[in-house]
Simulated scan of single mutants.
Amino acid sequence: MHQRPRGRYADFQEPYEPAHAARPPNSAPFLPTQRPAVPPRSEHPGPYDFEPAPRRRGKGKRILISVLVILLVVAAGTYFWADSKLRKEVDLSKVIDRPAAGEGTNYLIVGSDSRKGMSAARRKSLHTGGSAEAGQRTDSMMILHVGSHGPTLISLPRDSNVTIPEFRGSASGRIRPAMGANKLNASYAFDGPQLLVRTVEYNTGLHIDHYAEIGFTGFADIVDAMGGVEMDLDKGFTDKWSGADFKAGKQTLNGTQALAYVRTRHAFTGSDLDRTKNQQKFLSALASQVATPGTLLDPFTLYPVMSAGLDTLVVDKDMNPYLLGKMFFAMKDVNSGEGRSMNMPVSGSVGGNLQWDRPKVKQLVDELKNDAPVTVTSDR
């Protein structure tokens, strides 16, 4: 049985006349120039009547464009929402006598022991001690350098013996005299983030580009919003001061446990230096678990995590969500082995405070300023 030609131009092909078909006598054969009339399209199309392919492709393009527009609107809305929640309270332009900026970007990341707004019950559960009105200090301080040779995370022990130099008062705006030798975290206690940045820059010669600080409550809330952070502990330890009570091995830490883990110092012989290593491990693990498709593409996880952090995060006036994201991904790289972490090189102690190894510190800072591979090691 003769099959009707298929395709878009089936109606315009030359009719096929089988050899055995009978034709009336003296009938003229079809000539190539003759075209049969195109029948009108039926209201009920048959198996060979279908929409042309270009129409289907056009519809697919419209759907794709609509999806992209929606994603762009959501992304832009999220960006501006996050930017509006950032507490841009630190004005680095007021820091005096700053070293010249080098290559790469340097973040000063600070964990404060602020209890502001915490109830007595919350302070008890988090083992923070003190009162809601207690003065703030820095529990942890790190410099994160992001450059072309992978990120470098450097912990600054809070008991470091440093010089607090002449500075501009954050409230008065007046120049204040130098305070001389002191603990590094005392600079924050005296005049807050701006004096801390001034002290770090003065004692290292490294320009700080951005500042990020989070308190006890925000830290614990981020971890809880994540559903906990998985850690693999080399050894177990306890500390009644921080509330730490851990066994060795893999485990998921909730917000209270995570805070105890990063604050513990009395359980270690190396005290502050051992604690800074734990802080590096935990923050890198946290960043690694936040910066995953499972979190970033799940709004029911992403928005609670962002909200918990942004509500208590204090940053400099030039910080934005893009730079924060860049900071988190760099910390993730540290955890994955694409970067490195270390303590500020220490040579000994002075009056119970840790003394930095000045030749090593100078070499480290020169490498960071030139965005060269870091070759300096810390022995402790």
Rank of each mutant, 00 (worst) to 15 (best):
M1I: 11
R4P: 00
R8N: 02
A10N: 13
A10K: 08
D11Q: 14
D11R: 13
E14G: 05
P15N: 08
P15L: 12
P18N: 09
H20A: 12
H20Y: 12
A21Y: 05
A28H: 08
F30W: 14
P45M: 12
P45A: 06
P47I: 07
D49F: 06
F50T: 12
A53C: 03
P54K: 04
R55N: 11
G58A: 07
K61R: 14
R62N: 00
S66H: 08
L68V: 13
L72M: 14
A75Y: 14
T78W: 11
Y79Q: 13
A82K: 13
R87K: 14
K88C: 11
I96L: 12
A100V: 11
A100W: 03
G102V: 03
E103D: 15
E103G: 12
T105N: 00
Y107K: 00
I109Y: 07
I109D: 12
G111T: 04
S112G: 05
M118A: 08
K124R: 13
Q136T: 10
T138S: 10
D139M: 03
V146S: 08
S148C: 01
H149R: 13
P151E: 10
L153E: 09
L156E: 07
L156C: 03
R158Q: 02
T163P: 04
P165G: 03
P165M: 01
F167W: 15
A171D: 10
G173M: 02
R174S: 14
A178Q: 11
L184R: 00
N185I: 06
Y188Q: 00
L196I: 10
T204V: 06
L206N: 03
I208C: 04
D209W: 07
F219R: 04
M226H: 01
D232W: 08
L233M: 03
D234N: 06
G236S: 02
F237D: 01
A248N: 05
G255R: 03
Q257W: 12
A258G: 02
A260Q: 06
A260V: 05
Y261T: 06
H266T: 02
G270C: 06
L273G: 01
S284Y: 01
A285H: 05
A285G: 12
L286K: 08
S288W: 13
Q289D: 07
A291K: 08
A291Y: 09
T292S: 13
L296Q: 11
F300T: 15
T301Q: 12
L302M: 12
Y303R: 03
V305N: 07
M306K: 02
S307P: 01
V314C: 09
K317R: 15
Y322F: 15
F328P: 01
A330M: 09
K332F: 08
K332R: 15
D333V: 10
V334K: 01
S336G: 01
S336M: 08
E338K: 15
E338I: 02
S341E: 12
S341N: 08
N343D: 15
S349M: 06
V350D: 14
G351W: 01
N353Q: 05
R358I: 12
R358N: 10
K362Y: 09
Q363N: 09
L368K: 02
K369S: 13
V374P: 03
T377D: 02
S378L: 07
